[in-house]
């Protein structure tokens, strides 16, 4: 199980963060200040730290620096007003990610997932299809037309199709791989995503096409 250290002197915020993360299957250890956090880190290994910037004593910046020096784990900073101070900005730019309060739990989980994903792919890991490059680490698409971010589900769908070009993926296989076994949505969902992906590819990498294989599923083709 993934273990996350949450550090915030605001108890309400700490309970909110810890509660949300626990609910989504993470193990959470919490600390109310920098000293406590460092003590907790010595006791057990941690995969990710979520650190509030404004804390009495050791503040978030200092704590992040110490975590960086002593442990090789990603840090997400929590900040109340992120673009005010230069010092703060420099730090935020250097951190793995930051969250501006107030945030919704969805955003917190999104960022935690993204950061863990990045740490899972320590080396560059890309797929190519025609003029299209799919970066599995940063979740970005690249083509002669520049750079593109597409929604995660669409990205995962595209990455799946591109992992085996010309291979036909059945709708069930796609749903299982992209949405998981406990997918609650209907048939329409996959259609919507395929349709959107096609529009996006038309703009961004017109040589790459998603072809419908009637009655079976979809495959990715690239003009050569």
């Amino acid at each position: 199980m993934i273990r996350i250290l949450a550090v915030d002197d605001d108890l309400h915020m700490l309970q909110f963060v810890a509660g949300e993360l626990r609910q989504h299957g993470y193990e959470v250890i919490s600390a109310e200040n920098g000293e406590q956090a460092l003590a907790r880190l010595e006791q057990q290994p941690v995969d990710l730290a979520i650190v509030d910037v404004m804390m009495p004593g050791i503040d978030g910046f200092e704590l992040t620096e110490r975590i960086r020096t002593d442990y090789d784990i990603p840090v997400i900073l929590l900040t109340a007003r992120h673009h005010i101070e230069d010092k703060e900005r420099g730090f935020l730019a250097g951190s793995d990610d930051y969250l501006v309060k107030p945030f919704e739990s969805k955003e917190l989980l999104f960022r935690v997932k993204a950061i863990l994903r990045r740490y899972d792919h320590p080396t560059n890991n890309t797929l190519t299809a025609g003029s299209l490059t799919i970066d599995l680490k940063s979740y970005e698409l690249r083509s002669p037309n520049g750079l593109s971010f597409i929604p995660l589900k669409e990205f995962e769908l595209l990455a799946l199709l591109a992992s085996k070009p010309r291979h036909v993926f059945t709708r069930d296989a796609i749903i299982e791989s992209v949405w998981g076994l406990d997918f609650q949505g209907d048939e329409q969902t996959i259609n919507v995503h395929i349709k959107r992906l096609r529009t996006r590819l038309e703009q961004f990498a017109p040589d790459v096409k998603i072809v419908t294989v009637r009655g079976v599923g979809y495959k990715l083709e690239a003009d050569s």
């Binding site: 930051y98 520049g146 929604p151 996006r200």
Partner: peptide, 20 residues
Amino acid sequence: TLSHLRYAFDDKELALSAQL
């Protein structure tokens, strides 16, 4: 900035293309 705002884009299922 685009990377950081990805959550907001994803939330609305928006694609973002950037030529920088």
